[in-house]
Design a protein around this nucleic acid. Structure first.
Lengths: 129, 129
DNA sequence: CAAACACATGAACACTTGTTCATATGTTAA
DNA sequence: TTAACATATGAACAAGTGTTCATGTGTTTG
């Protein structure tokens, strides 16, 4: 049977091996971004987590395109492209303008390209090793 | 019935309204990143597309942590954290070292933080408007 | 007006994904 | 060695996601 003091001594030893107290854990927890922001951030990155959407964004880097042309470039149905454009639009990654029968889409801002390039850098650096 | 010449004229008109020829579409297609790279990139961003993993990465920005502490900080089971760490490790987003019974995890490189910050900037800029 | 066209959208389905539960692996202490 | 501990992992299940198909909306043309 272990006494209270022995338990405390043991815990103190464990904490010292981990270099971590409850207070420190609490501080790390407080310094995390708020949960709502993290879910928004996750939703944003989900948009980049699909190769069809990445293809659409990559095509739009070369200039404004209408839905049908995107479908031709990616060899996919107009419906599939339209569904994905809707998602990209909802997350403010693309903007569009209507001109007659056609809807022209383009990238929303420079962040979109920057985010893609950061990911590419990460992947390409790995491949060197 | 439309003659061949009429069809050609019609197509030429359509192309001129779209400012886009088949050759231009082919060029855009050729300039896309190769499909294999796009799927790798999508797999990478899938890692950022989950709030649990984003929380883990955010916690690790503040320093090296073992699995149990991560579980405490995020109020989640050790198993759930361990599964996610496995995924993050497979995508080279975290590194770990074993010290006795404990496994310490840390961020793999600066890209991880940069990618997260790019996303945060994108979200926070939207909220201004 | 009707027909053709470009795009959007809802439902359904297969597929993927995150968590839980149970258990296995590996390390340390008794 | 056995017990306790920290972590890893496999199976299973619910929830989420991407595509297809059918159809709806809005615009232009004849």
């Amino acid at each position: 049977m272990m006494t209270v003091l022995e338990k405390m001594a043991c815990e103190a030893r464990e904490e010292s091996t981990c270099q971590m107290t409850e207070d420190m854990l609490a501080e790390i927890k407080e310094n995390l971004p708020p949960p709502e922001l993290l879910t928004d951030l996750a939703d944003l990155y989900k948009m980049f987590g699909d190769s069809t959407r990445l293809s659409i964004l990559s095509a739009l880097r070369q200039g404004e395109l209408c839905v049908m042309h995107l479908a031709e470039i990616l060899n996919m149905t107009q419906s599939a492209i339209s569904h994905q454009l809707r998602a990209l639009r909802a997350n403010n990654l693309v903007r569009y303008r209507r001109e007659g029968k056609l809807s022209y889409y383009c990238l929303a801002d420079e962040h979109v390209e920057t985010i893609i390039d950061m990911g590419l850098e990460h992947i390409l650096e790995e491949r060197v090793y």
